[in-house]
Deep mutational scan, measured.
Amino acid sequence: LTVQLGNLEWHFDNPEQALKMAEELAKRYQLKVEIDNGTLKFK
């Protein structure tokens, strides 16, 4: 699973870790998370 923020990307083997990080980033920057083809992206 990949977490993508702008041109930064983090790759996780563990989806739970990816979701946890995505939630933290979304909270911190007040963004919405969307999943696009196995990639978590922020809007």
Rank of each mutant, 00 (worst) to 15 (best):
R28D: 05
H11L: 05
N14G: 05
N37L: 04
E24V: 13
L8W: 15
K20L: 11
V33T: 04
Q17L: 13
A18S: 02
T39H: 07
E23W: 10
E16Q: 12
D13G: 07
P15G: 06
Y29D: 01
G6K: 03
L19R: 07
Q30T: 06
L31Y: 06
L19G: 02
H11D: 04
L1K: 03
F12H: 02
E23Y: 14
K41T: 14
E23M: 13
N7R: 13
A18L: 05
R28G: 02
T39K: 10
L1M: 13
L8P: 00
Q30K: 13
F12Q: 00
L31G: 03
L31I: 08
R28S: 04
L5I: 09
K32I: 15
E9W: 11
E23A: 11
K20C: 03
F42K: 01
Q30D: 13
Q17R: 09
T2E: 03
F12N: 00
T2R: 09
F42S: 00
D13Y: 06
L25V: 06
F42L: 15
G38P: 00
W10C: 07
K27F: 10
Q17D: 15
L8N: 11
G38A: 07
Y29M: 05
L40V: 15
E9F: 14
E24W: 15
G38L: 06
E16H: 11
L31S: 02
N14T: 13
A18W: 05
E24P: 00
K27L: 12
K27I: 12
A18R: 00
R28E: 08
K41L: 08
L1H: 08
R28H: 08
G6T: 03
V3Y: 02
K32H: 11
L40Y: 13
D36Y: 11
L5C: 06
Q17E: 15
G38N: 11
W10Y: 05
K32A: 11
L5K: 01
E34H: 11
L31N: 01
T2P: 03
T39R: 09
A22G: 04
T39G: 03
V3W: 03
K20S: 10
L8I: 12
D36G: 08
L25P: 00
V33D: 01
L19V: 08
E23R: 10
Q17N: 10
M21A: 07
E16L: 13
N7K: 14
K43F: 14
N14D: 15
E34C: 08
D36S: 14
L8Y: 14
P15K: 12
A22T: 03
Q17G: 07
I35H: 09
K43P: 05
E23H: 11
L19E: 05
R28A: 07
T2Y: 06
N7I: 09
V3G: 02
H11K: 08
A22L: 06
G38F: 06
M21K: 09
P15M: 14
R28W: 06
E34A: 05
P15Y: 14
E9M: 14
F12I: 03
V3I: 12
F42G: 02
N14H: 10
A18V: 04
G6I: 04
A26V: 04
L31W: 07
D36N: 12
L8M: 15
N14Y: 07
W10T: 01
V33E: 01
A22D: 00
L25G: 00
L31M: 10
T2K: 12
P15V: 13
V33M: 10
K20E: 11
F12E: 01
W10N: 00
D36T: 12
T39V: 15
N37R: 07
M21V: 10
P15A: 12
E16K: 11
E23N: 13
V3F: 05
L5M: 08
Q17K: 11
L8S: 10
M21G: 01
D36E: 14
L31A: 03
E24C: 11
Y29Q: 02
L19H: 10
M21C: 12
K27Y: 09
K43M: 12
L5A: 03
L25T: 01
E34D: 07
Q4I: 15
N37W: 04
K32D: 06
E16R: 09
E24R: 14
A18F: 06
L25H: 03
L40C: 04
K20G: 06
L40Q: 01
E23G: 07
Q17T: 12
E23Q: 12
Q4C: 04
L8A: 08
E34N: 05
P15L: 14
R28N: 05
G6N: 06
L25A: 02
K41N: 04
L1S: 05
G38H: 09
E16M: 12
Y29L: 10
E16C: 10
A18G: 07
K20Q: 12
V3A: 03
Q30C: 09
A26H: 03
A18M: 05
Q30H: 15
E24F: 15
G6V: 04
L1R: 02
E24G: 10
T39N: 06
E23L: 13
K27V: 09
D13W: 08
L5W: 15
F12P: 01
E16P: 03
E24M: 14
E9A: 13
L8V: 10
T2V: 12
F42A: 01
Q30Y: 09
K20P: 01
I35C: 08
N7A: 12
E23F: 14
E23P: 00
V3Q: 02
L1G: 04
D13P: 09
K43Y: 15
E9H: 13
N14I: 09
R28L: 10
I35Y: 14
G6Q: 04
R28Q: 09
K20F: 07
L19A: 05
M21F: 15
E24K: 14
Q4P: 03
E34V: 15
H11M: 05
K27D: 11
L5P: 01
L25Y: 10
V3T: 02
Q4H: 08
N7G: 13
V33C: 05
D13C: 05
Y29C: 11
V3N: 02
D13I: 10
E9R: 13
L8E: 08
A26S: 07
E24N: 12
P15H: 12
K41C: 08
Q17V: 12
A18K: 00
A26D: 02
K32T: 15
A18E: 00
L25Q: 00
L25I: 15
K27C: 07
K41Q: 07
L31H: 02
K32S: 13
Q4L: 12
N7W: 11
A22M: 06
G6R: 02
T39E: 06
L31Q: 01
Q17A: 14
K32Y: 11
N7V: 10
G38D: 08
L25E: 00
Y29A: 02
K32Q: 12
D13Q: 10
L19D: 02
E34S: 07
A22I: 06
H11C: 08
M21T: 05
H11N: 05
K20V: 09
E24H: 12
V33N: 00
G6W: 09
M21D: 02
Y29I: 03
P15I: 14
L19Q: 06
T2I: 13
L31C: 05
A18Y: 03
K41P: 01
N37Y: 03
D36H: 14
F12M: 04
L25C: 05
V33S: 02
Q30A: 09
L31F: 07
Y29F: 13
K32N: 08
D13V: 10
L19K: 07
L19M: 14
R28C: 05
E24Y: 15
F12D: 00
H11E: 04
F42Q: 01
K32G: 05
I35A: 06
A22S: 04
L31R: 00
A26R: 04
T2F: 07
R28Y: 08
R28K: 15
L31T: 03
D36F: 12
L19W: 15
N7S: 13
N14V: 09
E23D: 10
E24T: 12
F42W: 04
R28M: 11
D13S: 13
R28P: 01
E23T: 11
V3K: 01
Q30L: 06
D13K: 12
K32V: 15
G6F: 06
A26L: 06
N37V: 04
G6M: 05
L40A: 03
G6L: 06
I35M: 14
N14L: 08
E23S: 10
K20N: 09
L8Q: 13
K27T: 11
A26Q: 04
L19I: 13
D13R: 08
H11W: 11
K27N: 11
L40I: 15
W10M: 06
A18H: 00
V3H: 02
N37H: 10
T39S: 06
H11R: 08
Q30W: 08
E16S: 09
Q4R: 10
N14Q: 08
L5Y: 11
E9N: 10
E24D: 12
D36A: 12
E16W: 11
T2M: 08
F12T: 02
N14R: 09
Q17F: 10
L40N: 00
I35D: 04
W10S: 01
W10I: 09
A18N: 00
F12R: 00
Q4M: 13
L5D: 02
L40P: 02
N14E: 09
N14K: 10
N37I: 03
L8K: 15
A26I: 05
E16N: 09
K32W: 08
V33F: 15
K27A: 13
V3C: 06
N14M: 07
